Simulated assay, not measured.
Amino acid sequence: MALMEISVVPVGTDTESFSSDIQQALSIIEQNGLDYQVTPTSTIIKGDIDKLMDVAQVIHINEMEKSAKRVVTSIKIDDRTDKEMTLDGQRARVSKSER
């Protein structure tokens, strides 16, 4: 299992807000049965690498098919084979190291 951070920014739309875009992306993630966590600037998704890439593509294409004239999608992948990663586990490790 891997973690993928995705941030999608639609450019050239009629509004400065994109909360409805985020809600639609979350719906796509949920339809694919993936765990996720929303952060202030991105969404972290846990899943099989192939499934993560498929979901990222669907989210990006969905934005292109809407009213955006341009879409900037940033993806960061953390893929480990030596141990299981979870969203809560990663967050807990970071919290411990900050103390």
Rank of each mutant, 00 (worst) to 15 (best):
V8E: 07
V8K: 06
V8Q: 02
V8H: 01
V8N: 00
V8W: 02
V9R: 03
V9C: 02
V9Q: 00
V9G: 05
V9H: 10
V9S: 14
V9L: 15
V9T: 14
P10C: 06
P10W: 12
P10Y: 15
P10A: 05
P10F: 11
V11E: 08
V11L: 15
V11W: 04
V11Y: 07
V11Q: 09
V11I: 08
V11S: 01
G12R: 10
G12V: 12
G12F: 15
G12P: 05
T13E: 03
T13A: 11
T13Q: 10
T13D: 05
D14P: 10
D14A: 06
D14T: 04
T15H: 09
T15A: 12
T15L: 03
T15D: 15
T15R: 12
E16M: 12
E16F: 07
E16S: 13
E16W: 09
E16Q: 01
S17D: 15
S17T: 10
S17V: 13
S17E: 00
S17P: 02
F18G: 11
F18V: 08
F18M: 00
F18W: 02
F18A: 08
F18L: 04
S19P: 05
S19V: 14
S19N: 13
S19W: 13
S20G: 14
S20Y: 12
S20T: 04
S20L: 09
D21I: 13
D21A: 00
D21H: 07
D21G: 15
I22L: 08
Q23H: 13
Q23D: 14
Q24F: 06
Q24C: 13
Q24M: 10
Q24Y: 10
Q24V: 15
Q24H: 14
Q24I: 03
A25H: 02
A25Q: 12
A25G: 02
A25M: 06
L26G: 11
L26R: 01
L26D: 01
L26A: 09
S27M: 15
S27N: 15
I28R: 01
I28C: 02
I28F: 03
I28G: 12
I29M: 07
I29L: 00
I29G: 07
E30G: 04
E30N: 11
E30M: 08
Q31F: 10
Q31S: 10
Q31V: 13
Q31K: 07
Q31P: 05
Q31N: 07
N32M: 06
N32W: 07
N32P: 03
G33R: 12
G33I: 13
G33D: 06
G33F: 11
L34R: 12
L34S: 09
L34M: 07
D35C: 15
D35V: 02
D35S: 05
D35H: 08
Y36L: 07
Y36P: 13
Y36I: 00
Y36Q: 05
Y36T: 08
Q37G: 09
Q37E: 05
V38M: 13
V38N: 08
V38Y: 01
V38H: 03
V38A: 02
T39W: 00
T39Q: 10
T39M: 00
T39P: 04
T39F: 04
T39L: 00
P40S: 04
P40Q: 06
P40T: 00
P40G: 12
P40W: 05
T41R: 03
T41L: 10
T41C: 04
T41H: 09
T41Q: 12
